[in-house]
Design a protein around this nucleic acid. Sequence first.
DNA 1: TCGACCGATTTTTTT
DNA 2: AATCGGTCGA
Length: 726
Amino acid sequence: MSEAFLEGLNPEQLRAVTHGDGPLMILAGAGSGKTRVLTHRIAWLVQHAGVDPRSILALTFTNKAAREMSHRVETLLGTTATGSWIGTFHSICLRILRRHTDLLGVGRDFAVYDVDDQRRLAKRVVKELNLDAKKFKPAALLAGVSRAKDTGQGPDDMEVPPYPATLVKFYTAYQKMMKEASALDFGDLLLETLKLFSRHPCVADHYANRFKYVLIDEYQDTNRVQMLLAERIADRWGNLCVVGDDDQSIYGWRGADLDNILSFSQRHKETTTIKLEQNYRSTSPILDAASTIISNNKGRHAKKLWTDREGGEPIRLHEAATEEEEALWIVAMIDQLAQQGYQPGEIAVLYRTHALSRPVEEALIFSGIPYVVYGGLRFYERREIKDALAYLRLAVHPDDPVALTRVINLPTRGIGARTVDLIFKHADSHETGLWDGARLAIEEGALTARAAKAVGGFMEMVEGWRATVESTPLDQLIERILVESKYRDHIEKDGDERSSDRLENLAELLSAAEAFEKEGGGGATRFLDRVALVSDMDRAGDTFSAVTLMTIHSAKGLEYPCVFISGMEEGIFPHQMSMDEEGGVEEERRLCYVAATRAKEHLHLSYSRIRRVYGNQSEYRIPSRFLSELPGMAPSVAKINPYARPPGAEPQVQQVTGEEEGGNYYLPDPEEASYSTGMKVRHPRYGIGVVTQAQGLGPSAKVTVEFGSTAKKFIAGMAKLEILVT
DNA sequence: TCGACCGATTTTTTT
DNA sequence: AATCGGTCGA
């Protein structure tokens, strides 16, 4: 029996990996090798302790983490398909629920609603309850519902004081409609599994008996329902192993309860606690900075993270005048790092909110550095994809109100809001599903002849798909849907400049369906499940040749040799929205700690003095309080302006770079450059072109240049645009 | 019922 | 900037 995988572990890691039976809590500081410990522990259980892989359950937060874990376990054990269940809480719960649909209160092929679906349904509910949508915002009500679900409360569990009566009323109506829709949202996936377990103890026992070892990653981010679920399964054998770090708890807004990890050893008698405090990731300047920031939080678990990686690059901070300039600085530093030999894939730019990606993206585009943005608008969240999938959902479950209202009049078929409302009313008064409601509305002559004909035609079309949904390969079915619904025609014809993108996305959806069929298929419901739970994020880290841009939340669990954190400003980081909440700023500070500890060798921070909000108006900003918490890092220190002239130097001499195509071109000093329409310029890659648009002055000016038939946009300071001497 | 137009309004993070 | 909802004329 080979135990080579125990080599190279430090004593604490070894103790955690080779812990036998009984509850185990591993408090793993950032970069202390916790993923290594988890995977090695699974390998050790199987190989050394003779545990059947099928009796291991490992729960993670992201699909990516789950995949990485399975992959690493496979590598260690040298086998594939070990039979362990490794997945996110949500996907594991969905798997369980699908196996016991007969015991659930929802239909067989229930749908999984994502945030967008939830929002649409919430709007419908607000409308049906005759609430003033201005006073009671669907999104806010929904947030209240999600929070309730995270803590395990159904609508009946909520006492009216302290909870607002409207919220409870909304929650009740929302759940009713979800049930009619045969749909579960993310919160339901967890809560319904817990309910399934308590209503049918034999089902729970089945899983409890099977899973002798339960491991949970990122335990500090579990909510109450997740904790109860894990305990219900694990308490049979008592082998619950949790890994977490209270300093990295950043999902409080999603119902994560820090108390889960803080009180673990009280809930589980004879818990073995192991602390992993040696950081293998970051140099000491980085670790020191991160530790200093987090030390400003109160009520932390005592811990002292240390590293033996002495020395290393100091942290850099840059104050920019504008967001464009901030982006330019980042790109200039990336260039510098590239010259030092770093690959683009070793660099990440992190930010608090997606909106901050834009200026950085633009600067990267213009300098030709490859990059990938994670998160943001995901593939399956794109409008055309959601539309197409709504048709597919109707084929599976025609009562789905969100899917129905989404596409019943898309493209327009003469079925307006009035008709849709009538259908809802009929379904309601006859206590039937929407589909029968529509049928009844026609039969009872409630609709105008025109509307009745339109609705009838639509229903016939959907019934046609419905008849073959089981027997037709998915890609063929979707193709048929796109044609018969005339949705593709609609996209083709709408004259929007984005329509070719949309068509491409639809083609990509078809190839995803085809790939799904090739992998073994499993029907439309399984395809839709996957779509609901899998995000683009799962590809993060697959790209080695591009700079990665993402939010700090997405970056959790990842590491990069070089990390930039942009937008270090009050109101952004800490975010405005977090400031009036209890403990909000502390969570932001933990987020800052997470961000800083992603870096192995280089950490670069930046902020801008002026930032545009909502496109139009600019706001003055002040540096983040987290910066002033760093000693020797007062915002005025370490100002770096890559375009600054050395003191006393003359303005950059205009550099004549050559003579061709009838003129001399020179590369202007970015500070001095000014571009205007009609000017002839030369770009190293695209050649000679004509300026068709120029916005702004100095290095942050935006210039549009036409090269023959193609137009390109540049930022003056980045693009090496030479100007024709006249 | 449709589409054009206008004004108001943007919760930050994710399964 | 971009999107969403409401209004109004055809």
